[in-house]
């Protein structure tokens, strides 16, 4: 729903949301934090594009790319960004819009102008290495999912028969967790999650570089999404079979103990996943598991 930013619509409605006729922009000023390649300095660039109703941040970026001309008339290379589904399902278009992490495809311009009429500010996520402009390398999101084995182990060359039944109650509990789109918003907003950027050194082989990067990922915080996925698969009747392996990963370096309960993750998650419930459940499971392991080994 777009509220009456358009001053020509019903006058009383416009007054009720506190906007006036002059709030309808003819053009939009967009400030973009650009970076030409990994490891290079970033710089700000302003673009002015014509306003149209019902735009989102992706359509802004399409217009910027089509013009590729800055506010002061310089021809520049098009601003690069990532997107795919355009319906908040693929998780690829995460960026900072007006300083806050969110999906560009569902960031509606009319709302943004209501909040901050002067300009729209676009930046790449700050906790992931920039590839170019607004494109970042989100591989750590997926690496974390690997660390906690966020899958149901059913590999095998034989028919394992039908899976166990899951009650509707369990389904209802698990379904929200399964909607995670690996966008990285929860990690970006988390004050306990810090950037890991490993650069390839002179003369270093690809293998050595990747091993070094993996080691760096492995000792840093998993992120809220991975904790939540671990809880999702630990509640699944088949996924449960490797529950202890997931708990081991959750209590390893950079595990659940890194969470400081700021609860930003749950506030920014575009899919409204109950991340803090997962975190608290994981905290309980991890404590019990650590005690059990202490006495059982």
């Amino acid at each position: 729903m777009i509220r009456a930013v358009d001053g020509h619509s019903d006058g009383s409605g416009a007054a009720a949301v506190g906007t006036s006729a002059k709030a309808t922009p003819e053009s939009l000023r967009v400030r973009v934090l650009r970076q030409d390649s990994p490891g290079r300095e970033s710089y700000w660039e302003c673009h002015v594009i014509p306003y149209e109703p019902n735009m989102n941040v992706i359509s802004i970026l399409q217009k910027i790319a089509a013009r590729s001309t800055t506010e002061d008339g310089r021809k520049v290379a098009p601003v690069a960004w990532d997107c795919n589904c355009l319906e908040e399902v693929c998780g690829s278009c995460t960026m900072l819009v007006n300083g806050r992490t969110r999906m560009a495809c569902t960031a509606l311009v009319d709302r943004l102008v209501e909040e901050q009429p002067e300009e729209i500010v676009l930046e790449p996520m700050s906790k992931f290495p920039v590839v170019r402009d607004l494109m970042v390398d989100r591989r750590r999101v997926f690496h974390s999912l690997g660390r906690v084995k966020a899958w149901v182990p059913i590999d095998g060359s034989y028919d394992q028969g039908p899976g166990p039944r899951i009650s509707p109650e369990e389904q209802e509990d698990a379904y929200p967790l399964s909607t995670c789109i690996s966008c990285g918003c929860c990690m970006e907003a988390c004050p306990q999650f810090t950037k890991v950027e490993v650069q390839r050194m002179e003369g270093e082989s690809v293998e050595a570089f990747e091993a070094r990067r993996t080691a760096a990922f492995d000792k840093n915080f998993l992120g809220a999404h991975a904790i939540s996925q671990a809880m999702l698969f630990n509640s699944h009747p088949t996924g449960k079979m490797i529950a202890d392996e997931r708990l081991e990963a959750l209590t390893d370096r950079g595990g659940i103990q890194m969470c400081g309960n700021a609860q930003n993750c749950v506030a920014v998650c575009p899919k409204s996943i109950p991340l803090t419930r997962s975190i608290a459940r994981a905290g309980r499971a991890a404590t019990l598991w650590a005690i059990r392991r202490f006495f059982d080994r």
């Binding site: 400081g260 309960n261 803090t276 419930r277 994981a282 905290g283 499971a285 991890a286 404590t287």
Partner: peptide, 12 residues
């Protein structure tokens, strides 16, 4: 915070 950390209160 401790109650969340240890999983004493888990639901919102």
């Amino acid at each position: 915070s401790l109650g969340v950390t240890w999983g004493i209160w888990t639901s919102p």
